[in-house]
Design a protein around this nucleic acid. Structure first.
Length: 472
RNA sequence: GUCCCCAUCGUCUAGAGGCCCAGGACACUACCCUUUCACGGUAGGUACCGGGGUUCGAAUCCCCGUGGGGACGCCA
């Protein structure tokens, strides 16, 4: 049974790179009818916060990436880590080191100055025939893992292929701090082992940790899982993702009006491919997903493409669902969402034209507020030529059947009788009724509003234009 | 500095020795559609980092170089 996990540390929100890692891990488990676990790596008490835990959980939920087991918290497994450390100490695969952080800094500086890789020199590492100095009184030791000195650690990375690291490159890493708290690389090993993780799918930045973790796993006699290291996601500008790059948290995509299925589809396609397929459902993704088609190189985020996908999914989304997603956005703006026209009717007419939910809200808003079209738009469209035909349209409006086809017929008839082209009347109507020059078919927009509102907005606009003409 | 990873259109990618004088998508340009703007449709331009090998044949395999990234914590 395949078991994968997503193991974020709760020091911030769920960012887009983490979301992709989670997605791939989740999909791999789904694809193989396995289990997907969520583990919160909160051993850094200083930087971990409950808010961050909530943010991560919230992000996962928004994306719909449900875990089968967990969330497990490392802070709740301390007893287990301590027991394993004791066991390793007893077995000789770990030892106490009394070197102070200051001494360590000195050593590293010297090594760096000499052009060498900074690393622990093994001075407290027990060796046959080696006499260790007596432990300094009153100094609490850290526990270090006794890393093998010879040979290589190698694994066949499911994304990058075979990777080999000489043990000579590795030093004896600290697995427990002076205060007894276990460190990251150690907790990961114990957790992956205890939780029966078969496939570790994680970010590229962990490649360097892998040989160390494999060595610990082997010292413990644990089975080594398979590893798949995903390359990182770069910002739109090709730079490393950071707070400066706008939307970094997945929840910011929600705020910006993206649909989760669009973000998911985009992320799925970023660094993974299935031939020429671009648009596919989550379910389809789960059926197709495999590690063989993951790109080994870093991928640059492309907002244009995400926007395209979002617009696509907006067109496909159910009207009722979209209306309920738009409603809170309108309410947040203080717009009193009325019942005529209904939000669903507006969304149904407009969803094909919106790039995101906020744009949809922009379009819907004009139907519920006290509208004041911009003066320059009025001046541009309520021309001397347009006013008479507008007048006739207003006069005949009370008689027309209140549905788009009949209204469209009336518009055409008015325009024809005045020897004008369609836009001459359509544009003033758009501007007067919505304050915008771009709308769907104008007869449909007219039909959406109550007859009284249309009459009021048109008459007010016409009268204002007439008096402006009169005074000038 | 040392170690590790990566390298096809502007971007995401297809490609696992001949199907590729390199395909798709986003973006871009033009045209069509049109009641405005989108949508949609059609067409177009743009790429195998460089150099050596291996081979009858290389975008695909090997080596070197160059460029980019990551790691070197009592952070995760």
């Amino acid at each position: 049974m395949i078991r994968t996990r997503f193991a974020p540390s709760p020091t911030g929100f769920l960012h887009i790179g983490g979301a992709r890692t989670a997605l791939f891990s989740w999909a791999y488990a789904r694809r193989h009818a396995g289990r997907f676990l969520l583990r919160i790596e909160d051993t850094d008490l200083v930087r971990s916060t409950p808010e961050a835990v909530q943010a991560i959980l919230g992000g996962m939920q928004w994306l719909g990436l449900e875990h089968d087991e967990g969330p497990f918290y490392q802070t709740q497994r301390m007893d287990r880590y301590r027991a394993v450390i004791e066991q390793m100490l007893a077995a000789g695969s770990a030892y106490h080191c009394y070197m102070t952080p200051e001494e360590l800094d000195h050593l590293r500086e010297e090594q760096r100055a000499a052009g060498a890789k900074p690393r622990y020199d093994g001075r407290w590492r027990p060796e046959p025939g080696k006499t260790l100095p007596p432990p300094p009184a009153g100094r609490a030791p850290v526990v270090r893992f006794r890393n093998p000195t010879a040979g290589v650690v190698a694994w066949d990375d499911l994304v990058k292929g075979r990777i080999e690291i000489a043990n000579a490159e590795l030093d004896d890493l600290v697995i427990a701090r002076a205060d007894g708290a276990p460190t990251y690389n150690f907790c990961v090993v114990v957790d992956d082992w205890d939780m029966g993780i078969t496939h570790v799918i994680r970010g590229d930045d962990h490649v360097n940790n892998t040989p160390r973790q494999i060595n610990i796993l082997q010292a413990l006699g644990a089975e080594v899982p398979l590893y798949a290291h995903l390359s990182m996601i770069l910002g739109d500008d090709g730079q490393k993702l950071s707070k400066r790059h706008g939307a970094v948290s997945v929840m910011q995509y929600d705020e910006q009006g993206y649909l989760p299925e669009a973000v998911l589809n985009y992320l799925a396609r970023l660094g993974w491919s299935h031939g020429d397929d671009e648009i596919f459902s989550l379910q389809q993704f789960c059926e197709w997903f495999d590690l063989d088609h993951i790109t080994a190189s870093a991928a640059q985020f492309n907002t244009d493409k995400l926007n395209w996908l979002n617009a696509h999914y907006l067109k496909r989304a159910g009207t009722a669902r979209l209306a309920e997603l738009v409603r809170p956005r309108l309410q947040a703006r203080g717009v009193n969402v009325g019942t005529i026209p209904s939000l669903t009717a507006i969304v149904d007419l407009y969803k094909e034209r919106a790039g995101n939910l906020n744009e949809l809200a922009d379009m819907a808003e004009v139907f519920y507020i006290d509208l004041h079209p911009k003066a320059e738009l009025l001046a541009k469209h309520l021309t001397a030529e347009a006013l008479p035909v507008l007048g006739e349209f207003i006069d005949r409006l009370p008689e027309v059947a209140w549905e788009a086809a009949a209204i469209g017929g009336l518009i055409k008839d008015c325009v024809t009788r005045h020897g004008l082209k369609m836009p001459r009347l359509a544009m003033p109507l758009r501007v007067l009724l919505t304050g915008l020059e771009q709308t769907p078919s104008v007869d449909a927009v007219v039909a959406l509003l109550p007859r009284a509102t249309v009459l009021r907005r048109l008459a007010a606009g016409r009268d204002a234009a007439l008096s402006a003409a009169g005074t000038s």
